[in-house]
Amino acid sequence: MSPLVQGMLTIVIGVGGCVGYFYLSNLILDKIIFPAKGDNPGININRANLVRPWLFLFPAMAALGLYLVYPVVGSFWRSLYNRSGDDFIGFGNYQTMFADQGFQVALFNNFLWVLIVPAGATFLGLLVAQLTDRLKWGNIAKSLIFMPMAISFVGASLIWKFVYANNSDIGLINALRDFFGASEPLDVLQVQFWNNFFLMIILIWIQTGFAMVILSAALRGIPEETVEAAIIDGANPFQVFFKIKVPQIMGTIVVVWTTITILVLKVFDIVYTMTGGNFGTEILPSYMMSYMFRDDGRATAVAFVIMIIVLPVMIWNIRQARAEMR
């Protein structure tokens, strides 16, 4: 059976199964287990309404539990075992990993990524949002800058491979160098240390649109009176922006910043496609993938380190959500 047919069948089974499950389970609950008639219909209705939320929630919770909660525990457990998974070695994987120079490089690079990509994308996003705010063709400009969001990391990497190409007749960077009199083309992806920044530019290029969209909405939400008052008091446009607007959207800036930070810790595609982790560009996600299928113990240990780095953001998010619900 071709995968395409299989896919159609899965849609039918999946959707039909879901609809069938929800319909039938509700029907059974109302008609058979707690029917709203007989001796005590009132109590039965109340009982049915106690159970019903769990009928609605069950498929989602089962999937979440299996595909996201269990792996956190499962990964940690697996990381305590050796490569083949039959020997318990405690924190052995973590010990060898932290001693491994490749890991240290990846950790350091990842630190740079987390520092620079969210900062760069948020700053540029804010800049574009502010500049296009009162522009007639602002929406077109925004939509064009937003476009890279639709492109896969692999596609974006290929696009930038052209820009960085080690040939002044293909790569823009080397064409510019050539124009300004450099004699030899330079492979920017092999320039130790700085190549990390060339890879970061790709992610900044993608994420600026995201930051821009959200910050632009936040800028629109600023009460006009505050801006008007500042202008009447004689503030120049820069003062209005930095002293009136930015402080009012600080909360949104933080949200954008953390969202991009989380993303940075997930993206292995760019490093994988551009350099394959060579020339000192490894980051944790790509370092993990280099052990995937080879040494599951080590791979899960790396994944768990990523989890620990994400943990503060997760806790902060949960607290925000709870505060909001009150």
Binding site: S75, R78, A299, M307
Partner: peptide, 8 residues
């Protein structure tokens, strides 16, 4: 939750 955790 980082996707990487779920893979193995």
């Amino acid at each position: 939750v980082p996707l990487q955790l779920a893979l193995v």
